[in-house]
Design a protein around this nucleic acid. Structure first.
Lengths: 217, 217
DNA sequence: CCACACTTACTTACTGGTTAGTAAGTCAGT
DNA sequence: ACTGACTTACTAACCAGTAAGTAAGTGTGG
């Protein structure tokens, strides 16, 4: 298998859907299917039907169901970061503003929230293909958020007990995930954006020892 | 080899397990299976194997897989309330002490926590048989916890904004569920009991406007 | 004390359905 | 003419649920 020489990076537009485009369609469909039925219950036939091909066609592009899931998870990350103008995660108070904003947006993106909730829940089953992804994601988020907490503490000349920032970070993540679950099951019982803002403010206020308010982004 | 004549009906050494006992065995097995594999992925064959019978034997006792799940959920409730001495849910500060205590106990009952997390996550999929149970459970918990928040507020002569108690209650539940998820995926990253206490204290402190401490049970 | 009827707790065997994955062939576009 | 994007057709596995049979227990009348 000789390696071909470097090809141009710019993708030429063709009549037939390009490989990249078709893959994106399938990824979007898979996100919907895994979101509404879960990974195990959502079948490749379901995914394929949504893009008008057969399940073997999906496998042609992704090789196996597990690999498809992996790419779906990466795809979600990519889309998630996309709407972030700066293209990088903000720090300090901006991070928490961003979290609340995301919650507000999520209230109109039920499918994405559901996919995330379902896959996260499923991921704690034995040997689930998404478990390491979710665990890694939690770990990264805890790091970023605890960093932001530390920044706020420094700004306000507050000295935090050992591990307090990490604890607060874990709590904030837990809050958001848990609220999403309740909201998915009963959208009228929980105001996703408002509850998220309230809860994050509570955690920060208690952690920093002085009132914290998260103003509209 | 002759058995002495004795009419003991108080201590029936039945060779065959009684119906009630067998059902409990199956429920415990099903809890393990649904907890480790989820409802859809966990099969009746798995459950049956754990009690040494065939899957048809399980169906003999429970009729269908859906009905088995329902009884598993009720079973969990029964076991959960069992270790409560008063046999009724406490109110006010005692409720929050109870929640923290439960979290501490849960740290040594991974299986139960996992089953709850998996089924709750799965329940947000379309038409899942557990969804109404989980939704109802959330609703009841929100009611009980917001009631306790109101009691605390009254005790301390604090007047809460409209819906604040409900919001705090939802946050507390979200906290506990979310922390369990993180703990299941990485037990070293989260101290379940400590994080729960910290987070609930934070919510209560922020809600009531004065420091709240949850002392050991 | 036992015989008979009945019930319970299963098992074996099967049905109809669904699944991921494979292999081979078709056809359009370059 | 060749490559890539599929389809059709198939497989081997697994699933919940059903039906029918069996063995072991239980209650009852004599």
């Amino acid at each position: 298998m000789g390696m071909s020489e470097a090809t141009e990076q710019a993708a030429p537009k063709t009549k037939r859907p390009t490989r990249a485009h078709r893959r994106e369609e399938i990824l979007a469909a898979a996100t919907r299917v895994f979101g509404s039925k879960g990974y195990h219950q959502g079948s490749l036939v379901d995914v394929a039907a949504q893009v008008g091909i057969t399940h073997a066609g999906v496998l042609h592009h992704f090789g196996s169901k597990d690999k498809l899931l992996w790419e779906v998870l990466e795809y979600r990350d990519r889309v998630d970061v996309q709407h972030l103008e700066g293209k990088h995660i903000p720090g300090g108070m901006d991070l928490f503003r961003h979290l609340v904003t995301t919650a507000r947006l999520n209230a109109d993106r039920r499918g994405i929230v559901q996919a995330y909730a379902v896959l996260t829940g499923e991921s704690v089953t034995d040997g689930h293909p998404a478990s390491s992804w979710v665990a890694h994601r939690f770990s990264v988020l805890r790091g970023e958020i605890s960093q932001a907490v530390l920044e706020l503490a420094t700004e306000r000349d507050v000295r935090l007990p050992d591990g307090e920032a990490e604890r607060a970070a874990g709590s904030v993540i837990a809050l958001m995930d848990g609220l999403q679950l309740q909201w998915l099951l009963d959208p009228d019982a929980v105001d996703l954006a408002e509850a998220t803002r309230f809860a994050i403010e509570s955690i920060l206020t208690a952690t920093l020892g002085s009132t914290v308010e998260i103003t509209g982004s």
